[in-house]
Amino acid sequence: MAKAEKKKVEDADTDLIAAINAGRVERFQELVTRYQGKLYNFGLKMCGDSRDAEDMVQDTFLNVFKYLKDFRHETKFRNWLYRVATSTCLKRRRKSKYAPDRELSLDEFLPKDEADISDTVPQWAAQPLAQVLNEELAQRLKTAIVELPEKYRLVLVLRDVEGFSTTETADILKLSVANVKVRLHRARLALREDLKGYFKNE
């Protein structure tokens, strides 16, 4: 029996992609303008360095251009773009000498002793967000994100920074939904530990 064709996903990029694939190659610039900011910031969090992020964006757009004709609209273009970006990013990092990913276990985030347990919500979590978030904290947070082991960082950035759903993240990373949830929870707990340390010393 013939395999049922997946339903095409239409989005704000569908017409533009059709035009580019029909030969209006110069319109690829519109796609670049639309997504360069998002991809650059994604690259900054994934690579941690502006030059690497710039190279990652360039390689991603070159790969997108190369494979755009093969894009089947089985997902939103934005999701496919991030899949290409993620794979570009991982390939780049594997070429360089990085230490293997550290595993984060749930146990390391459990309170070690009574002194570690608080029965009151700390000010940084109780006050309105705008009163707590400042430049210094934002910088600390960015550093903490970049320092997460890569496989946890990827999930956290896609879910909590870029705003993809759990299912979309699983689709982009070709992981199971359960795996995305496990990695996300550990990544969030690792960040929370970092923030707790920051506010304790403040």
Binding site: Q58, L62, P122, L129
Partner: peptide, 29 residues
């Protein structure tokens, strides 16, 4: 505290694209 951690992540400000990168991409296109 976990909820607030997630809220902070959603508020991370984006940096503007460096002009050098935009130019490089324009040349490639």
């Amino acid at each position: 505290t976990l909820k607030r951690t997630v809220a902070f992540c959603r508020e991370v400000e984006e940096r503007p694209v460096p002009a050098t990168l935009s130019r490089r991409l324009q040349e490639i296109v």
